[in-house]
Simulated assay, not measured.
Amino acid sequence: MNKKLVHFALLAMLGVSTAISPITAYASVDSDIESTTNKLTELQKEEQSAQASLVEIAETIKDNEVKAESLVAEMTATQNQLEELKTKIADLTEAIEDREEKLAMQARSVQTKGNTGNFVEFLLEADNVADALARMDVVSNLVKANKDLVTAQNQDKEAIAKAEKTTEEKLQEQNLLAAELESAKADLEAKKLEKEVVVATIAAEKTDVQEQKEYYLSLKEAAETEVATLTSIDAEIASAVENAGEETVVASTEKASSEASAKPKAEQPTKVTTAPAGGVWATVQNAAYAVSGTPYLYGGNTTSGFDCSGFTTYVFKKAGITLPRTASGQYGASTKVSQSQAQPGDLVFFSQSGGIDHVGIYLGNNKFIGSQSSTGVAVAEISQSYWGKYLVGFGRVN
């Protein structure tokens, strides 16, 4: 009987000490679950705020796109007005030349009679008073006609001067409109990109915290299961000690230990990152040449028309690669390589106005394909006559 009591005491101590660990872990996991839940709530609020800001920016972008379309229409109207002014200037110049020729003809007609070179001599050569009066009337009419022609000529010159001034003002206005369009585009795309990064960052953080919470929940579930198992073991041990002999107690203990050790443990989930597939140059090349000849369109990113970054975004999307929408954004997102290291399929960047304002796809042999305002989508050479002067560098899309 005493031997049985000793076994009972040992088994009871085993049950108590084994149960302490999962109970303690259970309390700690509850704290972790609460912490991750609070963090998820905070991130949810941040995400809602960022999404609201993104919606606001999107509305602003739409408003500015309408303004941009209006500015483009104004630029077209300005170009038409400039053409009209050029035509008027040509017409006025021709009219002045005609008047000058008429003055010369009149002077020659006066000089014909009497072979004289001035009006005074023409009057003095009159045969009589009647002839003199007739000659005076001719001279008077001629002088008046000349005066009228000269006045008209001066007025035409003033009109030409005004037309020239208007032309210059229109040219300046056109340049300002173009600068305003480019500035608005860059600012809006930068704001949109910034907010998209914020939203993406919050979403990624939410995913991480959610995974942590699920991990802690799995730990809690495992701890609860283990506590339930140990409780069952304790009951089985007590029953065995009370109703059976030493052999039954030992067998029950071995069985309980075996069940406890075989219980699976919760493990931290592992993230798997799949590396992007390589060898996309063939797809990029085919997509680029497929839209060759597409006209340039400010803000365009479809086959109806492309701007420079719209073209590269479109082409790389065909290969399953997403690029930032602006040339400067693509420059920042690419891995920089030297010109000697540049390969077909790398991006090539230019700066014509102080910032990264043009991008194309390098073809090798000092050539690239891009959407230029003067040619649309076409192959161009990085020559010192133009593009070579503005070359910034090359970037590889990872």
Rank of each mutant, 00 (worst) to 15 (best):
A9E: 11
A9M: 11
A9F: 08
L11P: 01
V16T: 01
S17T: 12
S21N: 02
T24S: 13
V29I: 13
D30A: 05
S31P: 00
D32H: 08
S35M: 07
N38I: 09
E42K: 11
E47H: 10
S53I: 00
L54S: 10
V55F: 09
I57E: 14
A58M: 03
D63V: 05
E65D: 15
A68S: 15
S70Y: 01
S70D: 10
Q81L: 11
L85D: 14
T87H: 12
A95T: 11
I96S: 13
E100Q: 11
R108T: 11
V110H: 12
K113T: 14
T116D: 06
T116V: 15
G117W: 03
F119A: 15
F119D: 12
V120I: 14
E121S: 08
E121G: 00
L123F: 00
A126L: 03
A126G: 05
A134E: 12
V138D: 06
V139P: 06
V143N: 12
N146G: 15
D148Q: 07
T151V: 12
T151S: 15
D156W: 06
K157R: 13
A161C: 03
K162W: 00
A163N: 12
T167Q: 15
L171P: 00
E173K: 15
A178T: 12
K191Y: 02
E194Y: 00
A200L: 05
A203R: 13
A203H: 08
K206Y: 01
D208H: 04
Q210V: 07
E211N: 15
Q212V: 01
Y216A: 14
A222T: 10
E226S: 10
V227K: 08
A228V: 02
S232E: 15
E236N: 14
A238N: 14
N243Q: 14
A244Y: 14
G245I: 08
G245F: 05
E246W: 03
A251W: 07
A251I: 08
K255G: 07
A256D: 07
S258H: 05
A260Q: 12
K265Q: 14
K265F: 04
A266E: 04
Q268S: 09
P269V: 07
P276M: 07
P276E: 05
A277C: 01
G278E: 14
G279Q: 07
W281F: 15
A282M: 01
T283L: 06
A287N: 07
A287E: 07
N301I: 09
T303M: 06
S304T: 10
D307E: 08
F316M: 09
F316G: 06
K317V: 00
K318C: 02
A319E: 07
I321S: 09
T322C: 03
T322E: 13
T322P: 01
P324K: 02
P324A: 00
A327E: 04
Q330V: 02
Q330Y: 01
G332A: 13
V337D: 06
Q339H: 04
A342N: 03
A342Q: 06
Q343H: 03
D346K: 04
S351E: 03
I356H: 03
D357N: 09
N366L: 07
S371P: 02
S373E: 01
S374C: 00
T375Q: 01
V377G: 08
A378Y: 08
A380P: 01
Q384H: 05
Y386G: 05
W387L: 02
W387M: 01
G388K: 03
Y390W: 00
V392N: 02
V397F: 02
V397K: 02
N398M: 06
